[in-house]
Design a protein around this nucleic acid. Structure first.
Length: 526
DNA sequence: GGACGGTGAAACTTCAGGTTGCCTC
DNA sequence: GAAGTTTCACCGTCC
């Protein structure tokens, strides 16, 4: 192994290697184990460069800063370091920001990205070096070494054939013994075996229901036969125990009334212990919705509990926040434990799931679900990203991802409510989905039906006494134009059946950013 | 003497991400 | 387990 010496202008080895990379006019990825660390390392590097480098990337920084209607602290931080051709990258960024950073790294306008493992998989980037600061990460078993496979993923980002003829992967260690351990485990070690993910109950339940519902299998024997050919069975080896697990799953699905079973009528020797399996109507729908049957069962129980009463939005949000699919939930921090236990009490009449006692093991999940539901309800009360970031430590990228899952789960609730003849429940869920999509109060629902109108514009209209579609129709075009700009105002007016005179081309200058919208909007309309 | 600011040690707190799935005027 | 943040005691400075 060749050794290289690197100048030591700072006492931070990561910064030193980064500076060396920049001196060679190359690019690098720095991998760390936490979002906060990614941001801090980027800032540390930028702080050092501030002395020696003039600002660049002004336009890019501006674009990053305004990726959201209102910049958050995160946007500001990112925009600031980007000026020095440094960036951080993790799941908390908006997809727009992630894209901008990846593209500009490829274009060479960003030299260094400090990132969590978001960038470890799949992306082809011109990094000459990967600098791996952390090989340990906090997981279910505490603070432990990451799998060799992941190390290989990260190192594999360096020296991509399209961009370089060679690449370097550098691991930072602090002691000689740590260095030896890393070389043995990661550099000279073997990657772990791949493990089947089918063995987990929620996954198994889902697939069994799906196989039955799609009529891919019609009997228990066929089902067992199918699983015997999977990688799971190959690893598990003990087919008898596996059959028992499958049998237990079948009984569960039967109890939930998602499938029906019947002993075979024609008792040929072959079928004697076999069972016919058929999905019920509701079972079929659940398989289509692709949610865990247990989740579906819980949803249905909640819908029944609600009965003919109108469910509250908090109640609905808590149902989905308690499901497995929403995980990881927002977790209770030491300082807000009391707040959420009392919130659980406060909302107890609205809750539609059975509440565990404080000493039961499920209580932690339950109280986390209260916090998660609270997070969603703040969003639909029109709180902005900065507020959510400060109050819940949830970054814009993460909240978008959560909202998308929440929407899917609410959709499942809506469908299940329809199938079980609870139209009022279905209607409330439907309204809530729109509110969740836009992050808006109920009073804006009417305006949100308009194309090109989201929470910001709807609020603007509402606060100017334009509160529903009738008001939109009545209001003077000039006033609407003042509020929304000419193009949007026109699109909006057209949607309520009002013709607006053609806008002259010459009037359009200064509206390039809206140009994109209006074009899309008009195409949709015609 | 007291307000204020800077410093550093001690005490807390928190800790990756990706995949599916549905509908849509 | 360790990085990052917050808290708090301590000290020097200034008015």
């Amino acid at each position: 192994m060749k050794t290289t010496s690197i100048k030591q202008p700072t006492n931070d080895p990561v910064v030193n290697i980064v500076l060396d990379t920049l001196e060679k006019n190359k690019q690098a990825l720095v991998f760390v184990n936490a979002k906060r660390s990614a941001e801090k390392v980027a800032e540390d590097i930028a702080r050092f460069l501030r002395k020696s480098k003039s600002k660049q990337n002004n336009e890019l920084a501006d674009e990053i800063l305004h990726a959201l209607p209102k910049p958050t602290k995160q946007c500001e931080k990112l925009a600031e370091v980007v000026l020095y051709e440094i960036a951080f990258h993790h799941a908390g960024l908006t997809s727009k920001q992630k894209e901008l950073i990846e593209d500009n790294f490829r274009a060479g306008k960003i030299k260094i990205i400090c990132c969590t493992p978001t960038l470890a998989a799949g992306i082809d980037t011109p990094a000459y070096r990967t600098i791996i600061r952390d090989l340990k990460r906090f997981g279910v078993r505490g603070y432990t070494y990451i799998p060799v496979l992941e190390y290989l993923q990260m190192s594999g980002r360096a020296g991509r054939p399209r961009y370089d003829t060679e690449g370097q992967s550098i691991v930072i260690t602090t002691t000689e013994s740590e260095k030896e351990a890393v070389v043995e485990k990661y550099v000279n070690g073997e990657p772990e075996d791949i493990v089947s993910k089918l063995a987990v109950e929620p996954v198994l339940r889902t697939y069994i229901l799906s196989l039955i519902a799609s009529e891919f299998v019609a009997t228990k024997k066929q089902l067992v036969n199918f699983f015997s050919k999977t990688f799971w069975a190959h690893q598990f080896e003990d087919m008898e125990r596996l059959e028992k697990i499958i049998d237990r799953m079948i009984r569960t699905l039967e109890d939930f009334e998602f499938i029906e079973t019947k002993k075979s009528d024609f008792v040929s020797a072959d079928e004697i212990n076999d069972e016919k399996l058929k999905a019920t109507e509701i079972g079929k729908r659940i398989a289509q919705l692709y949610i865990d049957p247990l989740t579906a069962h819980n949803f249905i129980e909640s819908i029944r509990k609600s009965g003919v009463n109108k469910p509250s939005s908090f109640g609905l949000l808590q149902i989905i926040s308690y499901s497995l699919e929403i995980r990881p939930r927002l977790s209770i921090k030491a300082k807000d434990h009391n707040d959420y236990t009392s919130m659980a009490v406060e909302y107890t009449d609205e809750l539609l799931v059975p509440e565990p006692q404080m000493f039961e093991p499920e209580y932690d999940d339950f109280i986390d679900s209260i916090k998660t539901a609270h997070f969603f309800s703040e969003w639909i009360e029109e709180k902005d990203d900065e507020y959510l970031l400060e109050k819940f430590d949830v970054r814009p990228g993460e909240s978008r991802a959560k909202l998308e899952i929440a929407n899917w789960l609410l959709y499942a609730n809506e469908e299940l409510a329809k199938l079980t003849a609870h139209p009022l429940f279905a209607r409330e869920v439907s309204k809530l989905r729109v509110r969740l999509k836009y992050g808006a109060k109920e009073e804006l629902l009417s305006l949100l039906r308009l194309r090109e109108i989201g929470r910001v514009r709807a609020r603007l209209l509402f606060n100017n006494s334009i509160k529903d579609l009738g008001d939109v129709k009545k209001v003077d075009f000039m006033k609407l134009k003042q509020l929304l700009g000419e193009n949007i105002a026109k699109i909006v007016k057209e949607q309520v059946g009002e013709k607006v005179e053609e806008i002259k081309e010459t009037k359009r200058k200064g509206q390039t950013s809206l140009g994109k919208f209006s074009k899309k909007g008009l195409n949709k309309g015609s």
